[in-house]
Computed example of a mutant assay.
Amino acid sequence: MTDTIPADSDVVVHQGAGLRIGTAPDSWGVWFPDDPKQVPWQRFLDEVVAAGYTWIELGPYGYLPTDPHQLEDELGSRGLKLSAGTVFTGFHKGDDQWQRAWDQALAVAGLASKLGAEHLVVIPDLWRSDATSEVLESRTLTDEQWKKLAAGHDRLGKALLEEFGVKQQFHSHADSHVGTTREVVRFLDETDERYTNLCLDTGHFAYYGGDNVKLIQERPDRIGYLHLKQVDTSLLFDVLKNDVPFADAVTQGIMIEPPHGVPDLAPIIEAVAAIDPDIFAIVEQDMYGCDVDYPFPIAKRTREHIFSCTHFARTH
Rank of each mutant, 00 (worst) to 15 (best):
I5P: 07
D10Y: 05
Q15S: 09
G16A: 02
L19M: 12
W28R: 09
F32K: 13
D35K: 11
D35G: 05
V39H: 10
D46S: 11
T54F: 02
W55L: 06
L58A: 04
L58H: 02
L58N: 02
L58C: 07
G59Y: 04
P68E: 10
L75P: 02
G76A: 03
G76S: 03
K93H: 12
A101I: 13
Q104R: 14
Q104Y: 13
A105H: 06
L106A: 14
K114N: 13
E118W: 09
H119F: 05
P124E: 00
V135Y: 08
R139V: 13
L141Y: 01
E144P: 01
W146P: 10
R155I: 07
G157M: 03
K158P: 01
K158A: 14
V166Y: 02
H171Y: 09
A174F: 01
R182K: 11
F187V: 00
D192Q: 14
E193K: 02
R194T: 13
D201A: 10
T202N: 09
A206K: 06
G210K: 11
V213G: 02
V213R: 13
K214Q: 14
L215N: 07
P220E: 13
D221R: 15
L226I: 08
L226M: 10
H227V: 10
D232E: 11
D243C: 01
V244H: 02
V244N: 06
A249C: 04
T251R: 14
Q252E: 05
I256T: 06
I268E: 01
I269Y: 06
D278T: 00
F280I: 03
E284K: 00
D291H: 12
A299N: 15
A299K: 05
I306D: 04
S308D: 14
C309F: 03
R314H: 10
